[in-house]
Write a protein that binds this DNA or RNA. Structure first.
Lengths: 378, 378
DNA sequence: TCTATTTGCTTTATCGATTCAGCACACTAC
DNA sequence: GTAGTGTGCTGAATCGATAAAGCAAATAGA
């Protein structure tokens, strides 16, 4: 059994042609029932396993697609990848994992390799707003889906499938929440402005500030490129302002943890001296003593949905455009001061912006999925 | 360019045979220099890209291997996967990511699929001590490497490549550390005893206890199968003992966080009322306010080394057995009480067991790699 | 100058599975 | 009894790249 059995081998044993074997195993109608059964029996006996490579060569389908992310060590990705992998497996696909390491050349190389290796499609979560690698894919009609991040190109955007969270709404929710808790000087720690996520979260935040008659003061805006270290430094810059903010919105949790470190190092209390809201709801947020209020994305669902879109596209060529925007949800924990202050004030509620219309505060107890996912071994 | 160019297309354009093109692109010595250059130019002009599937069919090499893990959401794996992916890319390979979800049938199916898809080898990190899927691979001479976990089968073990951390030493280090800090009643929260990691950590712990004339009391041993919830419950069981422990060693950080939750919920202080040591050094351990003392594994290096072994095996058939055991390192933070107590006592140092011979306490400031890895965007 | 050797390219077989065309043979219909 | 329709299998081509074998023409050696 070391040497793999081929169709030819089985054909020889059964004393028929390879086509007969192929037909028998594929349940082709024009094969005799008795011959079929005989062949199937022989194939089973000899542990015949079809060679997917040969099959792919002929069929132009590999049953594999690529997943391009920036870096799997980013705590955002494992959950996304899990959703993708589970759904892919359910639909009969495997995934090749590729990390760009934030390197455009590497990304280009990876896409090229994936295509040469015959993947049926690509799921992209690392696209930048002007990503040059997207256009050729569209031009070639190569199946792909953007997940998490979009691009900024009106013509192109209307031809591209994607699954993202409504980052604008999310950014709005963070600000709205802090506003309702009485904050009027809110600083924003932004991600990389080359990404749609950061851009949209910033836009949403800005818009909500405006709705309340506030402006996003330049001094209170710190572009930190999703870097924890930069967020740490920026926090001290904010603290040394003549009029420091009373609350900080960090556009992802990782930066929020950097802010948190800075605040604690600076001897401030959270949320008493400074309220803090993050984005993503990575697992570390929920740890007792950290308890970061954050805007939660359904990363697992996002991944699964992207796979559904991609497979639909692969298997039904010419299928129509699929774009989905999931709603974020605010996870109210302790870093914002909601619990301490006893909730929103009436006057603030009266001023509630549309951003919070559909928002409900979930019980922190139900924040994390229980069961299998909670088993973490090694 | 939508339709991929093939060798045949290029041959037609150049007015030569496909073999000529193949030879030109592979720099075969028996192709004329001028013809070669002409062909190369044409291939470039038309963006010829070789079809890896066809190549694989002929060469029996796919340049891809499988990575079988239990669940990418387990915080232990991303770093391992990163090491694997980076090294794989460096050596010209891609990886297909497969999660078993702790399901033996799924694992079997995955291995089968991977082999049918023609992967050149498999890296296995989910093996259980009596894993039934390993033997057939050995019997077939299929290239694979175990990483993180080993199996327990004397005959088989001597024929299998692996890269693991010295879990026995690690378990010993945890106990030794607590012992030197004056603890004499140390509870152990174990992982699944179907895994070599948990088994060896337990053995190491037990051995070190014995070296100090202590025994691992059954009451102080809680089998928790790497479940955070189970660890939480077990902690309360320990607390309600007539003579509760003064320290707890949890065999991974995730369970340690469960223990931590329980202790905090029970109104105890860490480390004043209970010392706590974990294993793995996942990122959450280092967060301010958590600061879990833990036994650190070089997960990234482990992954990279496993790839090196696997590729060696793939590319040089008949290469000799490769087994590597990396040394763990203790990361002393705050949950053990080392800082509070001002370090080890003289008398304890005198009793130091061999387990700690090579141990040095690292400055917590150098715990986390800086730079690129610290950028976490989405 | 005539046999060797080298050079440069083409032909052909191969990898393993699939699929269409083809061809007996059986069966139905009128 | 002959034309027409099915049935059940074989043969050959195909997917795209590779490599061994083959075969001219050019070069070298004596």
């Amino acid at each position: 059994m070391n040497q793999k059995m081929t169709l030819k081998d089985i054909a020889q044993i059964a004393g028929v042609s390879t086509s007969a074997v192929s037909m028998a195993l594929k349940n082709h109608p024009r094969i005799g029932i008795q011959t079929k059964n005989r062949i199937i029996k022989i194939a089973e006996k000899w542990h015949y396993q079809p060679n997917h490579i040969a099959r792919s060569l002929k069929s132009k389908r590999s049953g594999t697609f690529g997943l391009v992310i920036t870096n799997i060590m980013n705590p955002f990705y494992p959950e996304l990848a899990k959703g993708i992998e589970d759904k892919a497996m359910e639909l009969g696909y495997n995934i090749i994992l590729c990390s760009t390491n934030y390197d455009a050349d590497r990304q280009k190389y990876l896409i090229n390799t994936l295509r040469n290796k015959g993947v049926d499609g690509i799921i992209f979560s690392s696209a930048e707003i002007n990503d040059v690698n997207i256009k050729p894919l569209v031009a070639d009609g190569f199946p792909f889906v953007l997940v998490n991040r979009r691009i900024r190109n009106k013509k192109l955007d209307q031809r591209i499938d994607f699954v993202v969270v409504d980052n604008t709404a999310g950014g709005g929710m963070a600000i709205e929440h802090l506003y309702r808790l009485g904050h009027r000087r809110i600083a924003i720690i932004t991600g990389s402005l080359a990404t749609s996520t950061a851009l949209e979260r910033t836009e949403g935040a800005r818009k909500t500030l405006l709705e309340h008659g506030l402006v996003a003061e330049p001094d209170l805006m710190k572009v930190c490129n999703f870097s924890k270290e930069r967020a740490y430094e920026a926090t001290f810059e904010l603290l040394s302002l003549p009029a420091p903010p009373t609350a900080i919105f960090a556009e992802n949790d990782y930066m929020a943890l950097g802010v948190r470190d800075a605040l604690l190092d600076g001897g401030l209390r959270i949320p008493e001296d400074m309220a803090l809201v993050g984005f993503d709801d990575i697992e570390a947020c929920a740890i007792k003593g950290v308890e970061l209020t954050t805007i939660s994305q359904k990363k697992y669902d996002m991944g699964a949905q992207a796979v559904t879109f991609l497979v639909e596209k692969i298997e039904h060529t010419g299928s129509h455009l699929k774009q989905m925007m999931l709603s974020p949800e605010i996870m109210i924990r302790k870093s914002c001061g909601y619990a301490q202050s006893g909730g929103y004030t009436d006057s603030d509620l009266r001023l509630a912006s549309p951003a919070m219309k559909s928002t409900r505060a979930r019980d922190p107890a139900e924040n994390r999925p229980k069961g299998k996912n909670a088993v973490v071994e090694n």
